[in-house]
């Protein structure tokens, strides 16, 4: 490799890494998961959710009850999602946590083949952003084909 190529190569690599890092820091202010934005201990926010399975015949069954050989806390074992009805601290921010919960609903809907009853899963989430009053929102998984 010629000296000139080395010199230009170093410039490009250095500038690219710096630009990428700064870009990811900026992105962190608008993204849910904030990868490489290094926003640490960002919030004291808390959340809890009542998660139910909505069956083909309209029943709303809490996921705390095992179904078709599945348990919610076995299916969703990470990121503080195992016991959603208990009020938890949102370690890396509310947006991050609720994005995980949203994705978890879809994952459970897609990965419980023995369940022939559930049409979709629904989470009624109550969240407290730092010291703000609680807010309620509803998250829903994809509709499962072949239910009921």
């Amino acid at each position: 490799m010629s000296p000139r190529v080395r010199v230009v190569g170093r410039r490009v690599v250095f500038a690219a890494v710096v630009a990428l890092q700064l870009g990811l820091v900026v992105r962190g202010y608008s993204s849910d998961h904030k990868e490489f934005a290094f926003q640490m201990f960002p919030e004291s926010s808390t959340w809890r959710a009542d998660v139910v399975r909505v069956t083909a015949d309209g029943r709303r069954i809490p996921i705390e009850r095992p179904w078709s050989g599945y348990r919610w806390d076995d299916l969703v074992a990470d990121r503080g999602l195992s016991y959603p009805s208990v009020r938890h601290h949102a370690d890396a921010g509310l947006d991050n946590q609720l994005a995980f919960l949203d994705a978890a609903l879809d994952w459970v809907a897609d990965n419980t083949p023995r369940d022939g009853d559930t049409r979709y899963l629904e989470a009624r989430v109550t969240s407290w952003h730092n010291a703000d009053p609680p807010e309620v929102e509803v998250l829903r998984s994809r509709e499962r084909e072949g239910a009921g």
Binding site: F14, V17, V18, Q21, V25, A37, F38, Q39, M40, P42
Partner: peptide, 18 residues
Amino acid sequence: WLLRFECAAIYGASGLSK
């Protein structure tokens, strides 16, 4: 120099967000 930048950027990004 790149690692020094990253090291400082992490403290800086964390502090700035707060």
